[in-house]
């Protein structure tokens, strides 16, 4: 998350919106944004509705056995189609911003030029 914040200018330059999602309450997410200086929005899926529908629930993965989201990154194009997915098998090892930017350049920009 921190590395994505640091690379936001590159996302802005490509007109890519960055949105984070967790099961935390909006208050907890706002606290995280304030203390860590994150400027992208953080959405709150407290009912686990979206992470369940997207099959991203890590059952009992959180503190006190709470169901939380497994780390995952999705790049979605302007037609709403998923173009790149990163599902880590180790939650320490998450996508780097460079990977998402490279995916945008190869999967989206490269294909636009054919139209």
């Amino acid at each position: 998350m921190r590395s994505f914040e640091e690379h936001l200018p590159e996302f802005d330059a490509r007109k890519i919106r960055v949105i984070a999602i967790s099961v935390d309450t909006p208050e907890e997410s706002e606290h995280l944004r304030q203390t860590q200086g994150y400027t992208f929005p953080i959405l709150s899926d407290g009912k686990r509705e979206v992470i369940r529908r997207w099959d991203l629930v890590h059952e009992h993965g959180g503190e006190g056995g709470a169901d939380i989201a497994r780390p995952a990154e999705f790049l979605i194009d302007s037609s709403g189609r998923v173009r790149w997915v990163n599902l880590t098998e180790d939650y320490r090892v998450r996508a780097r911003p460079e990977q998402a930017l490279a995916a945008f350049d190869s999967e989206i920009v490269a294909n636009i030029s054919f139209h």
């Binding site: 998350m1 994505f4 996302f11 490509r14 007109k15 890519i16 919106r17 960055v18 949105i19 984070a20 999602i21 967790s22 099961v23 935390d24 907890e28 997410s29 606290h31 995280l32 992470i51 997207w54 991203l56 890590h58 993965g61 959180g62 503190e63 939380i68 989201a69 497994r70 780390p71 995952a72 990154e73 999705f74 790049l75 979605i76 194009d77 302007s78 173009r83 939650y91 998450r94 996508a95 998402a100 945008f104 989206i108």
Partner: peptide, 15 residues
Amino acid sequence: AKTAATLLIFYRGYW
């Protein structure tokens, strides 16, 4: 300008 893409980052949460 249109939004070119949207990056969704699901994460474990902050405790």
